[in-house]
Nucleic acid binder design. Structure first.
Length: 432
DNA sequence: CAGCAGGGGGCGT
DNA sequence: CGCCCCCTGCTGT
């Protein structure tokens, strides 16, 4: 304990440090994470990213992978480069016209000093603020939007679980085979059993790979990197990681989609979903209006696909406003999962639509005490009938079974009557 | 528009 | 269960 400590100070430490960092990045040395954006890959350092962004920090925390690849969606490449520059060098020059966009990107990534307040009120915050007033304001007091974003990130509920797993249309692709026979029939079956693709929005993640999605999203969601319009609705980054979706962006993603669906739903009439060729046309066994909604508006296909099942659609759209709509989705998936045992599950909403009289018992029986009749419900769709034969016959349409073969051609049919009718065609020809 | 086929309601046995 | 009828959609003329 001699005479005092000496304080050794590296005068140019900061500058040197930054410079070295930048050089390392340039040379891609020691990089341990790759950020993919608009088809470009940026090898960078976890250390730097997590230093500058809690968002990245959390991602890395939850990513055991040694060299993860993070796919950023809806972030402009130029902005990202600028942000990297900002993170590595502590400053970046940006054209005024691009500022808004850049800030939004920074918000999405929760870059300290730009989108979220920097931790301690250090004096040299000024460096960044010297570039533009705006950002300094933002930093010191995040405007409401920003704050809301933060809240969201806290109250965020995992999206991956509730993602509408393509409510796997229960029917096992009924082979309306009959071979080549009938174009009409085929097109019909096509429309009916149209393949409901999986929703694309869910953040499923594999670890290190990062391409496909990048491609199509970049084509869909943002326009070419050039137009500096503020229209960049920014929103989500898509992070392909094992367990993503902690971060506000995931939430925002959800919110946005929810909004979309919600608004679509409110625009459209519920029963409209049947118009698309779903099984719902059977809903009112007896007398449904054949062309009740001839000009069925268009629920965007993506939405329909995402919601797939008939019941799902009902539930979802019935949800109305977005927040409840979202909970509706959860309810939907929940029930779907719960009934997993029986391949084709019916959601209550569908039942209600189906039940004659509307107020009838939930299932099984309809009518008054004297006129009780059993209702037979198709296990593949929402079809119900009062006739057992009706149900049997109907089920054939699901199984694709066509027991009755035409002796004159390859034609097979579900009912004998249809065969007879068909044969009449042949014989009519032969006679005439 | 006609012809054909699919799907469903309903009745008689 | 068998049969008939009806409605609807698709396709070709």
């Amino acid at each position: 304990m001699a005479d005092g400590m000496l304080s050794l100070s590296w005068n140019n430490h900061r500058a040197t440090f930054c410079h070295i960092l930048a050089t390392l990045r340039e040379k891609e040395r020691y990089t341990d994470v790759t950020v993919a954006c608009e088809g470009k890959f940026y090898p960078v350092h976890k250390l730097v990213l997590s230093t500058c962004s809690e968002y990245f920090e959390k991602i890395f925390e939850n990513t055991p992978c040694k060299h993860p690849v993070i796919v950023l969606k809806d972030v402009n490449r130029c902005d990202l480069e600028a942000l990297f520059c900002y993170m590595y060098e502590g400053a970046v020059s940006v054209a005024q016209s691009n500022l808004g966009r850049l800030i939004k990107a920074a918000e999405v990534l929760r870059i300290k000093g730009l989108a979220v307040p920097d931790e301690p009120p250090i004096s040299d915050r000024r460096t960044a603020s010297s570039h533009h007033h705006h950002s300094s304001d933002d930093r010191s007091s995040p405007h409401p939007k920003r704050r809301r974003r933060e809240e969201n990130s806290h109250s965020h509920q995992g999206r991956s679980q509730s993602s509408p797993s393509p409510p796997s249309s229960p029917r096992p692709s009924p082979l309306h085979d009959g071979g080549d026979s009938h174009p009409a029939q085929r097109s019909r079956s096509d429309s009916q059993w149209g393949d409901h693709g999986a929703t694309d929005r869910e953040d499923g993640g594999m670890d290190g790979v990062a391409d496909d999605r990048l491609g199509d999203h970049s084509t869909t969601s943002h326009s070419a990197p050039t137009p500096p319009q503020v229209e960049v609705m920014v929103d989500e980054t898509l992070v392909k990681e094992e367990m993503i979706d902690q971060g506000d962006t995931g939430q925002e993603d959800m919110m946005d989609s929810g909004m979309d669906y919600g608004s679509v739903g409110s625009d459209s009439r519920l029963e409209g979903s049947a118009g698309g060729g779903g099984e719902e046309d059977h809903m009112l066994p007896g007398k449904y209006e054949p062309k009740a909604n001839p000009s069925q508006q268009a629920i965007p296909e993506a939405v329909v696909e995402a919601l797939a099942g008939p019941s799902g659609m009902q539930t979802w759209l019935g949800g109305g406003e977005m927040p409840s709509g979202f909970s509706g989705l959860e309810g939907y998936t929940g029930s779907e999962g719960g009934q997993d045992l029986h391949p084709p599950s019916q959601a209550p909403a569908a039942h209600q639509l189906v039940e004659p009289g509307g107020g009838g018992p939930p299932l099984g029986w309809v009518g008054g005490a004297t006129t009780r009749r059993k209702v037979h419900r198709c296990s593949y769709c929402s079809y119900t009938t009062m006739y057992t034969t009706g149900l049997k016959r109907h089920l054939l349409t699901h199984t694709g079974e066509r027991p009755f073969m035409c002796p004159y051609c390859q034609y097979c049919t579900v009912t004998q009557y249809h065969l007879k009718r068909h044969i009449r065609v042949h014989e009519g020809k032969f006679q005439g």
